[in-house]
Design a protein around this nucleic acid. Sequence first.
DNA 1: TATATTTAGTTCGATATCGTACTTTATTGG
DNA 2: CCAATAAAGTACGATATCGAACTAAATATA
Lengths: 152, 152
Amino acid sequence: MPNDDADRLFTFFTEIGIIAQLSRAAFEARLPDGMTLPHFTVLNHLVRLGDGCTPLALARAFQVPKTSMTNTLSGLERKGLIRIQPNPEDGRSKVVTITSAGRKFRDSAVVAAAETFGPMVEKFPAGWIETLTPQLAEIRAVMDRARDDGPN
Amino acid sequence: MPNDDADRLFTFFTEIGIIAQLSRAAFEARLPDGMTLPHFTVLNHLVRLGDGCTPLALARAFQVPKTSMTNTLSGLERKGLIRIQPNPEDGRSKVVTITSAGRKFRDSAVVAAAETFGPMVEKFPAGWIETLTPQLAEIRAVMDRARDDGPN
DNA sequence: TATATTTAGTTCGATATCGTACTTTATTGG
DNA sequence: CCAATAAAGTACGATATCGAACTAAATATA
């Protein structure tokens, strides 16, 4: 790879990183007390894609180590936003379900997100989000595959 | 903001966040021992934009709290990759300079980056990086401005 | 000039992240 | 059926991140 290509790539990932950091900080600033973005993200996933998945499935969905997911889930359970129960179909694993308090919290966080990002998005050029998102999704998919191939 | 818009926004930032996470993990896996992405990013900044800036300037450049920058810099100094000296022009502040070991390290990390991202980028659709990067930069600029306006 | 305010940096404490190693349960191969 | 291996989850330790409060130095104000 020529050096210029490396530079461009690096710039690209740097922009991605800074946007991720800024959006996370902006969103978390609106969240109550000890709640973090991962907490909300998990609740959102449970609402949108359904209950009853295992901790490991969640860890894979968000590309985090399972120890990180253990920590996130225990925080949510401590706050009464989810329940973690033994999996009747597999003694090794558990099943995560969202509580009604969890649903309520998620809904109010969606409102918070709207308030955080609403004023911002009005200033983005029209249609960018719609065209960028699928492109980013594809880039993500490529990176996922590269990762699955393992480090060669 | 309608709910659909909120959803789209959320999806967008989620993709951004996952790409940031994947790229960081892929890159750090190539870095020796205790080196992190922020370590490299600071060295890269010193090489590309020049030596002799203050810790606070670096913290602002990367949008991190100054306490985080203190930690990053002390790690780099411990490894002999930078020097931190008193600022002769301002008794409160310090001046950061990169050592030759730091330069050498940065150069080899650039190679590592090329090896990490080279095989990946070949699989991205041609030209995407070139068109996406300026768009992301503009989105980032909008978010920066929104942040500077402060919480209203 | 004397005091108040602002600025740069650090220290400290709380929490997040994540790798390693472990326990428990399932699955596989003989 | 039994041993070997794999898989799910957790405990633990190391480090990163970051907010609050602090110190020291510079600047503003009276």
